[in-house]
């Protein structure tokens, strides 16, 4: 079993509003991120992703629960491991009247890094040549890249990126995703928080899906979307086949091209049920799930449970 870089158990965060009501942002979250690769942290807006990250990084206090980074309890022992962690939480936040380079120099010097490290980090995100411009004059993409450069100042073992492609144009998104993949491949563990399913599916090796502040599913992306959730069945007598499969306990819907059978069962069970009634298959093809269908299925179920 690989070492866990991030662990949370029963992590909870409740906010008290001015009216005295309590709003639970994170409600007992269990999170386990193994070392290496890119781990997606997926959830709809308001599901508690950013709050979880802020608690991990000591910016917000947990109401209850345990958190570990690199095996040490945080926030109590966060200073011991903070030099191994780079993070961008929500939008990039720098002093607008300082240049990009000045902003990084202040951060770099606070952890005793030589000034040359700033130039290296700027080069890594292709900001060389614009480093002396005021931060307020940067485009959103440049701001995001500067934020990533700031995370690289420490040469981190863990990179936490919270919605890093928000507001970027397609070229900027591709650039950031390539950077993330490159970092993940280089041995850095990347926690990528996102609500963009395609992004997580493209970039991440593993994923934790959360909803309503709780873990809904976790594992390798390939495992989560593996397994066929539905089969397309084409037979000569579709109506009779639908009746037979329905009687055998399958959820069947009919469309123009044939039958859609939603089940986790394998193809042999469908074949056997039909052949026992003299129905011969013309086509039996799997309909692969994508992360979107998994995500929507999990989050809608979680929402219904919450409402109930």
């Amino acid at each position: 079993m690989s070492e866990l870089v991030i662990e949370t158990h029963g992590l909870r965060k409740a906010f008290r509003s001015r009216g005295g009501q309590t709003r639970v942002a994170v409600g007992g979250l269990d999170l386990a991120v193994p070392a290496g690769g890119v781990h997606g942290f997926l959830g709809p807006n308001g599901s508690g992703k950013t709050t979880t990250i802020r608690m991990l990084l000591g910016l917000a206090a947990a109401t209850s629960g345990q958190m570990r980074l690199f095996g040490v309890e945080v926030p109590q022992r966060l200073p011991e491991v903070i030099d191994r962690i780079g993070a961008v939480v929500e939008s990039p936040k720098f002093a607008p009247n300082f240049s990009g380079r000045q902003n990084l120099l202040l951060l770099s010097r606070s952890i005793g890094q030589p000034d040359s490290r700033v130039d290296e980090a700027l080069a890594e995100v292709s900001l060389t040549g614009r480093e002396d411009d005021h931060y307020r004059g940067y485009s959103l993409g440049m701001k995001q890249r500067l934020a990533i450069a700031a995370t690289l100042l420490k040469k981190p073992d863990l990179l936490i990126l919270d919605e890093p492609t928000n507001g970027l144009d397609p070229a900027g998104i591709r650039e950031i995703r390539e950077t993330i993949r490159r970092l993940g491949a280089s041995g850095v563990t990347v926690l990528l928080s996102s609500h963009i399913l395609a992004e997580v599916q493209q970039v991440c090796d593993s994923v934790t899906i959360i909803g309503e502040g709780r873990t809904l599913a976790s594992g390798n992306v390939a495992d989560l979307i593996a397994g066929t959730s539905a089969w397309r069945v084409v037979v000569a007598d579709a109506a009779r086949a639908a009746a037979v499969l329905g009687a055998a306990g399958f959820a069947v819907t009919t469309d123009e091209s044939g039958l859609l059978v939603e089940t986790d069962a394998d193809s042999a069970q469908i074949t056997r049920a039909l052949s026992e009634h003299g129905l011969h298959l013309q086509e039996l093809s799997p309909i692969r799930r994508d992360l979107e269908s998994v995500f929507l299925q999990l989050t809608s179920a979680a929402h219904e449970a919450e409402v109930a």
């Binding site: 990084l57 000591g58 910016l59 926030p75 966060l78 200073p79 903070i82 962690i85 780079g86 993070a87 939480v89 939008s91 936040k93 720098f94 002093a95 607008p96 902003n103 202040l106 951060l107 606070s110 952890i111 700031a150 420490k154």
Partner: peptide, 14 residues
């Protein structure tokens, strides 16, 4: 105002 306080705390959490 700029929000850079949180950024600073990511480098020195004490």
């Amino acid at each position: 105002a700029s929000g850079s306080m949180s950024n600073q705390l990511l480098f020195e959490p004490r």
